[in-house]
Structure formats: C-alpha cells, structure tokens
Computed example of a mutant assay.
Amino acid sequence: MNNINLIEKETKNIVLSILPNINGEDLSESSNLFSIGLDSVNAMSLVLKLQNSFGIKFEINDINAENFQSVATIVKLIEQKQG
C-alpha cells in the first residue's frame, strides 16, 4: 500500500471516530464532511487527532472549510504538510 493510501485509510478512520453516526460504507473520499455531521466543535477534535496521528502541525490559515471539506481535501493537505 502506498503512502497516499495509508494517509487516506488513517484519515477515514479518524473521521469515523469523530462522526460515530457514520459508517465506513457511507464515507467516500469525496463525501462532504460538513453535510454528514462535521461541525466546528468536532472539527477541532479532527484537527488535533490528525496532527497527532500524522506528526504534523496545521497553521491557522490551513484550518478552513475548503481544506476539511472531504477526506480527499484533508489527504491533500496532509501530503503538503509532510512535504
């Protein structure tokens, strides 16, 4: 499994842990996380879990609706942070 697949798998697991009413079959790479239950409170939890899991630090301007709209956008951001 290549790095991007590992990032995507771990990101999905973290999202599912934060949104307990969503199951893996309902969460695609392009699912809009805000439309399936992500809000400002659990979004901060998502940010912290992603930072801890991937050993990265998001800057304040990284934390916006566009970057956290879907698993795909989060994976892209994590890839950029890992450089």
Rank of each mutant, 00 (worst) to 15 (best):
V15E: 02
V15A: 01
V15G: 00
L16D: 01
S17N: 13
S17K: 10
I18R: 03
I18A: 01
I18H: 02
P20I: 09
P20L: 07
P20E: 08
P20Q: 07
N21F: 09
N21I: 12
I22M: 05
I22H: 06
N23V: 08
N23H: 12
G24R: 10
G24A: 11
G24E: 15
G24Y: 14
G24L: 05
E25P: 00
D26E: 15
D26C: 04
D26G: 06
L27T: 10
L27V: 05
E29H: 00
S30D: 14
S30K: 15
S30P: 00
N32I: 09
N32K: 13
N32M: 03
N32W: 00
L33F: 02
L33Q: 04
F34W: 13
F34Q: 07
S35P: 00
I36L: 06
I36Y: 01
G37P: 02
G37L: 03
G37V: 04
L38P: 00
L38C: 01
L38Y: 01
D39G: 07
D39H: 13
S40H: 09
V41H: 07
V41R: 07
N42R: 05
A43M: 10
A43E: 06
A43W: 06
M44Q: 04
M44A: 05
S45D: 05
S45F: 00
S45E: 07
S45W: 00
S45M: 03
S45H: 01
L46A: 00
V47G: 01
L48P: 00
L48V: 11
K49S: 13
L50F: 11
Q51G: 14
N52I: 06
N52S: 15
F54R: 09
G55D: 14
I56K: 04
I56V: 15
I56T: 09
K57I: 12
F58W: 10
F58E: 08
E59Y: 10
I60E: 14
I60T: 12
N61G: 05
N61H: 11
D62G: 09
I63M: 14
I63C: 13
I63L: 15
A65E: 13
A65R: 14
A65K: 15
